[in-house]
Write a protein that binds this DNA or RNA. Structure first.
Length: 199
DNA sequence: TAGTTGATCGTCT
DNA sequence: GACGATCAACTAA
């Protein structure tokens, strides 16, 4: 059913952040928790360009919180916000750069029942509410503090090529939930995908 | 449908 | 001490 879940190579992440952000659309977010397998197609992301981007956590340089953003590309930066939510980012570029791509929404493909349970939703809940937001997808995929700094080429969290996924139309808009940096259209999503947040 | 608000706490000023 | 890369519940119209 889901053959060849093989992680993308390190070189995928060692390119410009905007390029990686667009290329992440359509790829598979894969989470393995013991025997349980969760898979979602990435449908919405935002790029955060480090020291040159006032909206980025890395704008003022490295801190204890954002340290992982400055690691080599292909790691997962997970942060805690609003006192209750986690959000997950894909670190891009070479070590010391401090750039990342926020995963904002995925289309659930496998492990829907587990995601519903992780989200605390009833079995008959609307599937569109499962993973249509950055904090929602983290809850659904059970991504939290423990996953901060995970290598995306490892097994527990990986991003894999979506085989047979044909080319889709990408839409660029301004980023959501920020005060500075609103002039840039660094949010990318797949056109008309029902899991994209704020349609 | 649009706009407002409360929840809740780690991080940085 | 203020606020945030959010979400859900609420109000008004």
């Amino acid at each position: 059913m889901l053959p060849h879940l093989h992680p993308l190579p390190r070189s995928f992440y060692l390119r410009s952040t905007l390029t990686v952000a667009k290329d992440l659309l359509g790829k598979l977010l894969v989470r393995k928790i013991g025997p349980k397998l969760l898979v979602g197609k990435i449908v919405e992301v935002e790029a955060y360009l480090g020291r040159r981007d006032p909206a980025s956590h890395a704008y003022r340089g490295k801190t204890k919180r954002n340290e992982v953003m400055f690691w080599e590309g292909g790691h997962l930066y997970v942060y805690f916000t609003y006192g209750m939510h986690f959000c997950a980012n894909v670190v891009t570029g070479r070590e010391g750069i401090g750039e990342a791509v926020l995963l904002r929404a995925v289309e659930p493909l496998a492990g829907l029942e587990i995601m519903k349970r992780n989200r605390g939703l009833r079995p008959n809940a609307n599937v569109y509410d499962l993973t249509n937001g950055p904090a929602k997808l983290c809850e659904a995929f059970d991504i939290g503090r423990t996953e901060n700094g995970s290598d995306l080429l490892s097994d527990s969290v990986m991003i894999a090529q979506n085989r047979g996924g044909e080319r889709e139309v990408v839409v660029a808009t301004t980023r959501i939930g920020i005060r500075l940096g609103t002039e840039h259209r660094w949010r990318f999503h797949l056109k008309n995908n029902p899991w994209v947040s704020r349609r």
